[in-house]
Simulated assay, not measured.
Amino acid sequence: MHIKWEGVMPAVTTKFTKEDTLDLEMFETNIQAQLEAGVSAIILGGTLGEASTLTDEEKKILIQETVRIVSGKIPVIINIAEQTTKGAIEAANKAKKYGASGLMMLPPMRYKANDFETVTYFKEVAKSTDLPIMIYNNPVDYGIEVTLDMFEELLTMPNIQAVKESTRDISNITRIKNRFGDRLKVLTGVDTLGLESILMGADGWVAGLVCAFPKETVAIYSLAKAGRIPEALAIYRWFLPLLELDINPQLVQNIKLAEVATGIGTEQVRAPRLPLQGDERKRVLKIIEEGMKTRPTLPECKPALV
Rank of each mutant, 00 (worst) to 15 (best):
Ile3Met: 08
Gly7Gln: 06
Lys15Asn: 10
Thr17Gln: 02
Lys18Trp: 03
Glu19Leu: 08
Thr21Ala: 10
Phe27Tyr: 14
Glu28Thr: 14
Glu28Trp: 14
Gln34Asn: 12
Leu35Tyr: 04
Ala37Asn: 03
Gly38His: 10
Val39Glu: 02
Ile42Thr: 13
Gly46Tyr: 02
Glu50Asp: 06
Ser52Pro: 05
Leu54Ser: 04
Leu54Trp: 03
Asp56Trp: 03
Glu57Ala: 13
Lys60Ala: 03
Thr66Leu: 09
Arg68His: 15
Val70Ala: 07
Gly72Glu: 09
Lys73Met: 08
Lys73Pro: 00
Pro75Ile: 02
Ile77Gln: 05
Asn79Phe: 10
Asn79Thr: 15
Lys97Pro: 06
Ser101Ile: 02
Leu103Ser: 08
Met104Ser: 13
Met105Tyr: 13
Pro108Glu: 03
Tyr111Ile: 13
Lys112Pro: 09
Thr118Leu: 11
Thr118Phe: 05
Thr118Ile: 14
Phe122Ala: 03
Phe122Asn: 04
Glu124Ser: 05
Ala126Cys: 14
Ala126Leu: 11
Ile133Leu: 15
Ile133Trp: 15
Ile135Trp: 06
Asn137Ile: 01
Pro139Tyr: 06
Val140Pro: 00
Asp141Phe: 12
Glu145Met: 15
Thr147His: 11
Asp149His: 15
Met150Arg: 03
Phe151Trp: 09
Glu152Thr: 08
Leu154Glu: 08
Leu154Pro: 00
Leu155Cys: 06
Met157Tyr: 15
Ala162Leu: 01
Lys164Trp: 04
Arg168Leu: 13
Ile170Asn: 05
Phe180Ala: 11
Asp182Arg: 00
Asp182His: 03
Asp182Pro: 02
Leu184Glu: 02
Lys185Gly: 02
Val186Phe: 03
Val186Trp: 00
Leu187Val: 00
Gly194Arg: 06
Ser197Phe: 04
Ile198Met: 12
Ile198Leu: 13
Met200Arg: 14
Gly204Val: 05
Val206Asp: 00
Cys211Glu: 09
Val218Leu: 05
Leu223Met: 11
Lys225Phe: 00
Tyr236Gln: 14
Arg237Pro: 04
Arg237Asn: 13
Trp238Phe: 05
Leu243Arg: 06
Glu244Cys: 14
Asp246Asn: 11
Pro249Gln: 12
Gln250Glu: 13
Ile255Trp: 15
Leu257Met: 11
Ala258Gln: 00
Ala261His: 05
Gly265Ala: 09
Glu267Asn: 00
Glu267Gly: 03
Ala271Val: 10
Ala271Lys: 14
Ile287Ala: 12
Arg295Asp: 14
Leu298Tyr: 07
Leu298Arg: 12
Glu300Asn: 14
Lys302Val: 10
Val306Gln: 10
